[in-house]
């Protein structure tokens, strides 16, 4: 390890950005598989998780090495500790997307699956939110991070609406219970992805300002 702190830090950022891009691709594929009812695409999404897992371990290892070897301080310290946290959030996002894809598999095989309009909406919103989150982190864009925090409310509202609609539909027609439950589980996992995005967005604000904004519900 002959390299200096700033080269190591730049390398760490690059690896995290690459990993985030894989996560973005995985989520888009999983959501698209739900939109299309496409089992092949869902399988592809599930398979690509192995790469994300390996990337996560590598980023964490490099970050720990950097802490041990360079003892960063101030803005560098905030960045490294945040990368460790964000790394784990991205990996969890990929896991949620895999859960979505696994729900899609039986639906797609049974044929004729079409997601509800709200499910399409939550899927599209979450994909956009994740894209903004990654961009906010890579560019240290605090304004975009705040936008991500606001968009979580929309996702939460959509999720609750989907749960209510699916319960009502099941009461009307018990034979659709299994599909309706899958829709709820897909929405639940998408909602979890948005939650992880808010974690990352809060960390973007922390890296920039040193201020921990988690659990603060002020405007």
């Amino acid at each position: 390890m002959a390299r200096n702190l700033h080269e190591s830090l730049a390398d760490l950022r690059t690896r995290l950005a690459r990993m985030a891009a894989s996560v973005q691709a995985l989520v888009e594929r999983a959501v698209e598989s739900a939109f299309q009812g496409d089992a092949g695409m869902a399988q592809e999404a599930i398979r690509s998780d192995a790469r994300v897992d390996a990337d996560e371990v590598e980023v964490e290892r490099l970050a720990i090495d950097l802490l041990a070897l360079h003892q960063p301080a101030a803005s560098d310290l905030r960045l490294v500790t945040t990368i460790i946290k964000v790394n784990s959030d991205f990996e969890r996002i990929a896991d949620c997307a895999v859960n979505v894809a696994q729900r899609v598999l039986p639906l797609a095989r049974s044929g004729g699956y079409r997601p509800t309009p709200d499910l399409r909406l939550i899927g599209g919103t979450v994909v956009t939110t994740l894209r903004d989150t990654i961009k906010a982190f890579n560019l240290s864009d605090v304004d975009l991070a705040r936008q991500v925090l606001r968009s979580d409310d929309v996702v939460d509202a959509l999720y609750h609406q989907i749960v209510q609609d699916m319960l009502a539909a099941t009461e009307r027609d018990g034979s659709a219970a299994s599909t309706n439950l899958s829709n709820i589980m897909i929405a639940k996992n998408l909602e979890r992805i948005a939650d992880h995005c808010t974690n990352v967005a809060e960390d973007v604000i922390y890296v920039h300002s040193g201020r921990i904004v988690r659990h603060l519900h002020a405007v």
Binding site: L149, D153, I205, V219
Partner: peptide
């Protein structure tokens, strides 16, 4: 898992 609106990060230095 409702997270309300984000706090304004512009008043960063006031909390010291």
């Amino acid at each position: 898992m409702s997270r309300l609106t984000a706090p304004d990060p512009s008043d960063v230095r006031t909390a010291r």
